[in-house]
Simulated scan of single mutants.
Amino acid sequence: MSNDLGDFLRSRRSRIQPAEAGLREYGRRRVPGLRREEVAQLAGVSVDYYIRLEQGRGKHVSDAVLDAVARALRLTDPERLHLYALARPTGTVDARPTTASGVYTDTIRPGARLILDALTAPAFILGRRMDVLAWNALGDLVSGFSRVPASERNQARYLFLEPAAPTFYPDWETVAGETVAYLRLDAGLHPDDPKIEALVAELSARSPEFRRHWAAHPVKEKTFGTKLIHHPEVGRLDLGYETLALPGDPDQLLVLYTAEPNSPAAAALARLAERHALTV
């Protein structure tokens, strides 16, 4: 039986050395990082209680205990959110709501569509599971969404199953880690979503690289950063990206690629738009 909570906790205690936590090392350690009893000590809970939590048997665990474990393991905010979601998989944690009505939809509001088309930067909208729901013209020229069948328009699927992905993303390993980290976060927030389960199962079966990254239990939001793209028409694009949750639809994310003014990337985007008769 799968125990995602236990796997996650073990992965996080393995990265902290006792000295870093102010503890004395003693005895021979068979695995790296903190022992379970050391995490319990740091969190101020009994060893038996922590062991049951790591074994997935900690029913009705309190906020205070989860917060104490999060502090002991030095979890980031996204990792803490993931811990709550895994500890309470029945949906009792309303950590990141869906639409205003409480029901997720992959339909794009007309207003969001107008915003997307009004943007002069490459932009697209991601839904749950990193499905690509919509894009503007320049976003399509950069990423080629329209050339992909609708049922396969998914960022994770492209990254791990498309042979051209490592060429398109020269820093493929970094992008892969970020993608899996966000997918982990999304899966933890929506444990009853069969489409997420199906996507993870498909990628695990078909991609050894995905299995390797997934087994590390990374958890991270995709809020902003940089993206290096090798475009087949205009070559290297050093871009920034910003990710914004749409008001009323926080499971839908507006992603914008940005280029510094007068930079080579800005010039390359202008050339790309000009070749295809776009006004930017």
Rank of each mutant, 00 (worst) to 15 (best):
H213W: 14
A150F: 09
R96Y: 00
I196A: 01
A268G: 10
D77M: 12
G58E: 07
E209A: 10
A95V: 01
D249R: 02
R28E: 13
L73M: 09
P163R: 14
H230E: 02
T243P: 01
P261G: 15
Y49E: 03
R157S: 05
D171E: 15
L237Y: 02
R109T: 05
K195W: 15
A68F: 08
L119G: 05
L278C: 08
G33V: 15
G177R: 12
A68Q: 11
T226P: 03
S151E: 12
D131L: 10
D94L: 13
A245F: 12
R52D: 01
L138P: 04
L83S: 13
L228H: 08
G33K: 10
H213F: 00
T179E: 08
R206Y: 04
V280A: 01
V31T: 15
L86M: 03
E79V: 11
Q252E: 11
R35Q: 02
S263I: 00
A164N: 06
S151K: 10
Q41W: 01
A85T: 04
F210S: 03
G127K: 08
A201M: 05
V175Q: 07
V180A: 05
L34W: 10
A118L: 13
I16W: 08
T120Q: 06
T179Y: 07
A68L: 13
V31G: 02
D131M: 14
L239K: 11
Q55I: 07
T226N: 11
D251T: 06
A266Y: 00
L34D: 12
L133F: 10
Y84I: 04
A150W: 03
A181P: 04
K227Q: 06
R13Q: 08
A95R: 12
